[in-house]
Write a protein that binds this DNA or RNA. Sequence first.
DNA 1: TTGTTTTAATTAAACGTTTGTTTAACTTTG
DNA 2: CAAAGTTAAACAAACGTTTAATTAAAACAA
Lengths: 210, 210
Amino acid sequence: MEDYNDKQLSIITVAERLFAEKGFHGTSVRDIAQEADVNIAMISYYFGSKDKLLEAVFRHRMYASRAFINELVQNDTMAPLEKIYSLIDRFINKMLNEQNFQCIMSREQLNKEQSPVRDLIWQLKGEMLGLMRPIVTNAQDAGTFTTDVDVEMLLTTLFGTIHQTIPAQHVLRTYPENAHMNDEEFKEYLRLRLSTHLKKLFKAILTHEF
Amino acid sequence: MEDYNDKQLSIITVAERLFAEKGFHGTSVRDIAQEADVNIAMISYYFGSKDKLLEAVFRHRMYASRAFINELVQNDTMAPLEKIYSLIDRFINKMLNEQNFQCIMSREQLNKEQSPVRDLIWQLKGEMLGLMRPIVTNAQDAGTFTTDVDVEMLLTTLFGTIHQTIPAQHVLRTYPENAHMNDEEFKEYLRLRLSTHLKKLFKAILTHEF
DNA sequence: TTGTTTTAATTAAACGTTTGTTTAACTTTG
DNA sequence: CAAAGTTAAACAAACGTTTAATTAAAACAA
């Protein structure tokens, strides 16, 4: 698994970008072939079909997501809130670094009919929850965090806020006060704003006594 | 404006559902015509094109959204936090009652190329922000709310959390602990869970001293 | 009311493209 | 020489849209 040659990787990369920009059905295999500079037939030859190509795009990023989960620091000297902060920053970085993939996820999770891709999405979300829940519950048992918090909804808030911010970028970019920034500065500005907001939010609800 | 006959309304309603379920490009005009029980040509006849039909679906719901904004209670005897609570509940109700439209919004806001529909979305979001900001800033001036809160991001969190919850329903529904509920009970359970979570979240960040 | 004319609604069929996929011939590689 | 890679061309199916013919409704004059 995961041993793609240059041409295959080029197809996957271009497909990811186009699927993100115009949606799966809004992108034709001819679009992909042209931008990846390969013959149309190569897509079927390497991936079997357009649907299988989408699956390949997914599984490609999924490996990175699995790695992300596994390399979680098990540093027990860290305070619970610091762990949460670290988790938030890692989520933000990951999502801002793979915006195209996150766009596809946002789209595909809306499909009502079951599909391999849809199953993969919710499987991944379940794994992310398994990452966050023990941190919270351990801190709750230790009396550091408040007990009446819905961890599943908290993760939904984390994902939702970041996923909403991704498409909002193009609007924020047009604000006159952001006009002076170049792409790198703007990305950093966005990262900081998201990070600050989410950390405040999580600190408030996790440590605020009602 | 907004004076559609039964057949036109039927087309709009069916189109809204199918666009939400399978996406704009994933839905053919033949699908829509068949489910709405009209001839294919009637879609072009009434709306001009498939794109214009999507616009019609949008403008149709947009009127309701504008009405939603305007009928905001200007009750000044309400405490700021109560106003926020009321706003949250109204957002949740609105979004759960027009899930198909919210699905389409989630999808269409991801499109990178500018379009009339995309413009309408961000225009609407701006208006929602104009609804929430004065409540917060007034309470900040009065010393009731903390001052270091990013209102724009807070609205992003509100939208994002609800928008993430909509597709999550199908997964939640399969949980064994939710199997006993009928559709109405489940919808109420969802509404309550969202409401409780978001109110706690907003109260914590708006009143918690750092 | 009547018959007539104009407008709107509705239809099946056809339009020209574009779609995803396959074929069969060809080139490169090992 | 065999296997893998690559290509232009062709494939049938589906796409959004239009056409031309027909029916229904509305408007109007007698």
